[in-house]
Design a protein around this nucleic acid. Structure first.
Lengths: 192, 192
DNA sequence: AGTTATACTTACCTATAAGTAAGACAAGTG
DNA sequence: CACTTGTCTTACTTATAGGTAAGTATAACT
């Protein structure tokens, strides 16, 4: 009774969860198949090599971000709302066990990944940077928040801060992410 | 003619390099032994389990930091110099291929690590946070730099920013680390 | 000279990983 | 009805990982 691509979606879901909780080299096809109650080869049927799975995962993640941000990129809008949405998304992911960002998960094994995965991962990162840079520029223009210097490096610091906070939160506690988010707000002059 | 503990030191050196370039699960005893021209079991002789190696690595790293900071923690001093020393140390590590900070390397596999390694890693992180918090507090007191809010969260943001920047630099380029460092300076009101 | 400790090597073991080839079976199509 | 297509299972292969037990060489100690 399994619907078409039903298993495929389930594989993706489980893989995404595993990727963000253990890293790319931290889970195996067995972890996926046993959880779904299918055999190992079933996963290989949908994703012949693990690199195919990696590619699908990063693509899916990128598409999600694109859907959420494309409207803003095209027409502008409330930068503060975009920012808050992003922060909440990040926070919620961590609080549901998906503490490692896909970028973080892949960065460790980056040098061993196939070229296509590397390119897609890098593209994803650059899109994110570009988006946040514009959000910061627009938001300062509209006086929703303030900061000194160029929006580009500022965007990098915020993204790196979130990335690092997620890592540190794993070792210590999720409080660290909250503190870092609070500090980012403070540095942007956003009253909470 | 191998001097006492000579091989042990070489193992540590190579392991540290591998840890910071591939992550803890990204290298094997074989990677170490083949590089040193010894057999696999020789590494096991010095570090029976990989967890023992992990412990030694994080301990060594912690000791390094302790040596560099203990004087400051005891008597105070120029916070700006401490900060610059830390930044330069980080930057130099990345530029010599040791892009992944040990904390970052362990954070991915954190949940699978033995309790002792986890505790030591967490201790190391907390020591670093404590140190940077004090550096920030003293530096603001002495008007070497400025920022708003508590030193604690600010220290977290800076550490997380560096941590994240190292990851992002792996995917993109080392320029990202430089940009993030520049932005941190800017946000602290340090003129470069 | 004989014993002991150190620092290895040789030769294994077990577990698990990714991956593949071939077959089963159901649903739909000409 | 025969045939194809999509989706899986069974039953492997190959490679590598961490780890161990037993033996060897060398220097140091008594």
């Amino acid at each position: 009774m399994t619907r078409i691509t039903d298993t495929r979606e389930q594989i993706m879901d489980r893989a995404a969860q595993l990727l963000m909780s253990r890293g790319f080299n931290g889970f195996s096809y067995r972890d996926i198949s046993s959880h779904l109650g299918v055999k190992n080869a079933a996963v290989h049927y949908h994703f012949p090599a693990k690199a195919d799975l990696a590619l699908a995962l990063v693509d899916e993640y990128r598409q999600t971000l694109r859907d959420k941000t494309s409207e803003f990129m095209a027409y502008g809008g409330s930068a503060l709302e975009q920012l808050k949405g992003f922060f909440e998304f990040t926070s919620r992911q961590c609080h549901t066990g998906r503490c490692i960002c896909p970028l973080g998960a892949f960065s460790i094994d980056y040098s061993e990944l196939p070229e296509e995965v590397r390119r897609t991962t890098a593209d994803f990162m650059n899109e994110t940077i570009k988006w946040l840079t514009q959000v910061l520029a627009v938001g300062r223009e509209q006086e929703e928040f303030s900061f000194s210097g160029d929006p580009g490096p500022k965007a990098l610091l915020i993204l790196a801060g979130l990335q690092g906070a997620r890592q540190m939160a794993r070792i210590n506690s999720l409080e660290i992410l909250d503190d870092v988010l609070k500090q980012i707000h403070q540095d942007l002059g956003i009253v909470t």
